[in-house]
Write a protein that binds this DNA or RNA. Structure first.
Length: 763
RNA sequence: GGCGGCGUAGCUCAGAUGGUUAGAGCGUGGGAUUCAUAACCCCAAGGUCGGUAGUUCGAUCCUACCCGCCGCCA
């Protein structure tokens, strides 16, 4: 086993401000890195930000600043958040740094010199949002995200991806663990088997990128740019490439499932072409889903990690802010790693977070530490007692006997990235120790037992419990590092970062050790914690741009696709990275636009996602330097604001804006038209019977001039289901059909690009 | 549409190359206890293992079809 471990997260695209999905990937990486370090492995943990591309260029323009200023700002937000959470990355790479730019140019030159890059031309549809060429007829929406595409004709450099089909398949075959989990591996293999086309790796349609050496009007395709970070950050091809020599190839690339292909097909092919070693494994995790629709009213919003830091931080009001943050970070880390089977999608909700926290951290681990150490304080003056007879302790308690197995099971699960099971194992040990204490009741002195006997018994029992806590703490340190450090020092063992956590031997705890100062670890979280976080989240919900400039309400051809994106956005990509920040931005943008277009009938003024990304960060060094043009936010709630201690101050909404609650009052549902006929003596009116799943409604719609009744039968449409009934031409209309209104009043029905069940609610 | 996956207690999920009473945690109900953060400990209730048909002595596990959900298809 080589004594080094290099792991990476994706570099996050700076088009959206950081949220819990980014935090998830980075937390997982941090936990792995901490475990590796604690095992004595030379570890390098890299994260960073991806800052080039047309989207950034445009967002910056919309925000009235340069792309570099824009990227600086958002990148700093990521850095600040990781600092607040105590994440221990060893390096943070930005793709706009000279070290990266130069190395990417070297990489391109190398690929070209080796004959894998050639010049060609391409005409086709380009999706700006995805920054990808897509297969679609001119004028058609992007098949991926539903946004409009642009017809582009470019002279491009191409990478000979097609040359690697066979070699990639052989590689997957020889390295069964290269892609995990299995289901992703199968997807990738079937993708490659389907045939590989050469890949366009340059752009001339915008400037915000790394120029191709020798042909500077071309900039490097964002994905090639981004993926290369894994070696450029190590100093590959630079004067000092010692890090590269030590750490490459990577042991683990952590990625979200949506970008598996880039990491498992393109990246290995680039490396093969360059003659460089391939990473050892790529592990894709799932997405975080927020509060499934059936659980609650539409709260479905993007959750930011800061909300949790602040919500939980308030449980420890006496601590300095920085320590509150670390405490909250532990709660979040534990939840994400314990609750979600790594690799699968998982549900996140404040309720689940608090419940898990209370059950496992407060009632379980925290309480166990508390009861054990306080008894040692009471009965042994705060000195770890001497167990009665060496060896007998282990023999006599089943959980102690099983601790070595706990250690090995924990290690095996953790190292297989099955964090959930690893923690389950550790917590089974917690429960066993609790049961042991209750069964032996060291606080009791049975009849007929002398004081000395009782004290000897107590010593035995409490030593055993304390020693078990020491071992469990060492195991869970990578997951709840801050709490573990506290327990370590409460046990009188000093700084956990200096401890040897790899040689865990029973009886490693020295009797006579003076306990440190005791303080509650995980105070129980009350219901208010949940409401506090919900409120914080609402307050910080992506604020749409202010300063509305009333513009001619022109029809939005992308309307339906925005609706679609909004729905899909409910499932937010957890760790989207590089330029597939799609889900999040899609959600932020689409829901806002949908709300406005559906309810307000107004066109929005600025893309909301980039604006959201520009929220001021008081904790950061940069001030809110002038983003000329639009004023971005009301001064009120900003990232990093201290948690409101109490008081559900109703968030004030910018003028002309509605809250998510307002929106959720509108019950939009998918309906299917069963009957459609003209209303006699009415030019525009159709009488429709629409199946809403649970019932069939009669709805009158003024669309007769645009749609023939028979063409509507079977069509799925969007219905405002809770509109008050109204009579038209003597017929009752029970609801309303959502349609775009074009010039001249011509309606275009909203629909879906894919099949949706009748009755499904839009929110 | 093509390929692949999933559907097990209220919730989140385990599991069995087919074989007697299908498991865990949380939640719920009851009991016990008071060292501890109204925590901990013990007990209990709760499942036609998506549906139908088939193979088999026997299927929740295999096969077929169906229903529902999901992923990949630049």
């Amino acid at each position: 086993m080589p004594d080094k471990f290099y792991l990476t997260t994706p570099i996050y695209y700076v088009n959206a401000r950081p949220h819990i999905g980014h935090a998830y990937t980075t937390i997982v990486a941090d936990a792995i890195a901490r475990r590796q370090r604690s095992l004595g492995v030379d570890t390098w943990f890299l994260t960073g930000t991806d800052e080039h591309g047309q989207k950034i260029e445009r967002s910056a323009e919309a925000a009235g600043c340069t792309p570099q200023q824009f990227a600086d700002r958002v990148s700093q937000e990521f850095k600040n958040l990781w600092d607040r959470m105590g994440l221990t990355c060893d390096d943070f790479i930005r793709t706009t740094e000279p070290r990266h730019i130069l190395a990417v140019q070297n990489f391109i030159t190398l690929l070209r010199d080796r004959g894998f890059i050639y010049k060609g031309s391409y005409t086709g549809q380009y999706c700006v949002f995805d920054e990808l060429y897509v297969e679609a007829p001119p004028g058609a929406p992007c098949p991926d995200c539903g946004r409009p595409t642009e017809t582009v004709s470019e002279e491009n450099y191409f990478f000979k991806l097609s040359a690697f089909e066979r070699r990639l398949l052989e590689f997957y075959d020889e390295h069964p663990d290269f892609i995990r989990p299995e289901s992703r591996r199968n997807e990738v293999i079937s993708f490659v088997k389907g045939g590989l086309r050469d890949l366009s790796v340059s752009r001339t349609s915008f400037n915000w990128g790394i120029p191709i050496p020798g042909d500077e009007k071309h900039v490097v395709y964002v994905w090639l740019d981004a993926l290369a970070n894994y070696i450029t950050a190590l100093g590959w091809s630079s004067a000092d490439d010692s890090k590269y020599k030590t750490f490459w190839p990577a042991d683990l690339h952590l990625v979200g499932k949506e970008i598996i292909r880039f990491h498992c097909v393109y990246w290995p092919a680039f490396l093969m072409a360059a003659g460089l070693p391939l990473p050892k494994s790529v592990h894709a995790h799932g997405w975080l889903l927020f509060e499934e629709s059936k659980m609650s009213k539409s709260r479905g919003n993007i959750v930011r990690a800061e909300t949790i830091l602040e919500g939980f931080g308030a449980l420890k009001p006496d601590l300095p802010k920085a320590e509150q943050d670390l405490f909250g970070a532990d709660a979040l880390r534990y939840f994400l790693l314990r609750e979600i089977a790594f690799g699968q999608d998982g549900n996140f909700s404040f309720d689940a977070l608090v419940q898990r926290y209370n059950a496992d951290l407060a009632n379980g681990y925290g309480n166990l530490v508390s009861r054990t150490l306080s008894m040692i304080g009471r009965y042994f003056d705060g000195l770890v007692p001497y167990p009665a007879s060496s060896g007998s302790v282990v023999q006599s308690h089943s959980f102690a006997v099983e601790l070595p197995r706990t250690i090995s099971t924990f290690a095996a699960s953790f190292d297989a990235l099955d964090f959930s099971r690893a923690l389950e194992t550790a917590w089974a040990a917690v429960a066993a120790v609790d049961g042991y204490l209750t069964a032996n009741a060291p606080w009791k002195q049975p009849e007929g037992v002398s004081d000395e006997q009782q004290q000897a018994l107590r010593a035995d029992i409490l030593y055993t419990a304390a020693e078990a806590i020491r071992i469990i703490t060492a195991l869970v340190y990578p997951v709840i590092p801050n709490a573990a450090a506290q327990v370590w020092s409460q046990l009188g063992l000093g700084d956990i970062r200096k401890a040897d956590l790899k040689n865990l031997q029973w009886r490693g705890l020295k009797p006579g050790t003076k306990l440190g100062e005791l303080s509650p670890l995980f105070p129980r979280a009350d219901k208010e914690t949940i409401t506090r976080m919900s409120e914080l989240e609402q307050k910080n919900a992506p604020a749409p741009a202010a300063t509305p400039e009333p513009e001619t309400a022109e029809p939005s051809p992308a309307h339906t696709s925005k609706l679609k994106s909004a729905i899909e956005g409910l499932a937010v990509a957890m760790a989207e990275s590089t330029n597939e920040t799609a889900a999040v931005a899609a959600f932020e943008g689409a829901i806002a636009e949908t709300v406005r277009e559906t309810i307000g009938g107004r066109k929005d003024q600025a893309p909301s996602a980039p604006v959201a990304a520009l929220q001021p960060t008081p904790s950061g060094p940069e001030d809110a330097t002038n983003l000329p043009g639009t004023r971005i936010l009301p001064p009120a709630p900003a990232t990093g604001t201290v948690a409101a201690p109490a008081g559900p101050a109703a968030p004030t909404l910018p003028e002309g804006k509605i809250s998510i609650d307002d929106f959720s009052k509108v019950e939009l549902r998918v309906g299917q038209i069963k009957v459609a006929e003209r209303v006699p003596k009415a030019d525009k009116l159709l009488r429709l019977e629409v199946d809403l799943g649970t019932e069939t409604r009669q709805i009158l719609a003024g669309i007769a001039e645009a749609y023939a009744p028979e063409s509507l039968i079977g069509r799925k449409v969007v219905i405002v289901a809770n509109l008050a009934p109204r009579k038209l031409r003597g017929l009752e209309s029970n609801g309303m059909i959502v349609a775009a209104s074009l010039e001249g009043g011509r309606p275009v029905l909203a629909g879906f690009l894919e099949d949706v069940p009748v009755g499904a609610r839009l929110k």
